[in-house]
C-alpha cells in the first residue's frame, strides 16, 4: 500500500464522518443511557476533528478556538446529563431508556 507524503484532507474528513456515524449508530442501537451519552461524546469529538482539520489545512486558528468552546459545552453537558441520569435512576431504578416511558401515551 502506497502512502502519500502528505495526508490528504479528505482522509481526515472521512475519518471524522466514520466516527460520527459510529456515534449515531450507538445512540440508535443501545438502550443504556450512559452508553448513549458516550456516543454523543463521540459525535462531538468527530465534529472537533473536522474543525481542527479545516483549521490546519486553511492555516487558520479559529477552528481550534471553536474546538475549545465545543469542549466547554461538552463538559457542561456531561455534568448536567449525568446528574439527570443519577436522578432518573433514583426514581425509576433503571438507566435503560426504553423503560423510562412516562411520556408515552
Amino acid at each position: 500500500m502506497n502512502l502519500p507524503d502528505v495526508v490528504p484532507m479528505s482522509w481526515y474528513l472521512i475519518l471524522s464522518a466514520i466516527v460520527f456515524v459510529i456515534g449515531v449508530v450507538g445512540v440508535l442501537v443501545r438502550r443504556n443511557a450512559l452508553i448513549i451519552f458516550m456516543s454523543v461524546e463521540l459525535m462531538l469529538n468527530a465534529a472537533n476533528l473536522a474543525f481542527v482539520t479545516f483549521a490546519r489545512y486553511l492555516n487558520s486558528l479559529d477552528g481550534q478556538v471553536f474546538v475549545f468552546f465545543v469542549m466547554t459545552v461538552a463538559a457542561a453537558e456531561v455534568a448536567i446529563g449525568l446528574a439527570i441520569i443519577v436522578n432518573v435512576f433514583r426514581l425509576k431504578e433503571t438507566v435503560y431508556v426504553d423503560e423510562i416511558n412516562l411520556l408515552k401515551g
Binding site: 502528505v6 490528504p8 479528505s10 472521512i14 464522518a17 489545512y57 492555516n59
Partner: peptide, 9 residues
C-alpha cells in the same frame, strides 16, 4: 467528502 480538497496545508 472524498472529493479533492486542498492538496495539503
Amino acid at each position: 467528502l472524498r472529493h479533492k480538497w486542498v492538496p495539503g496545508p
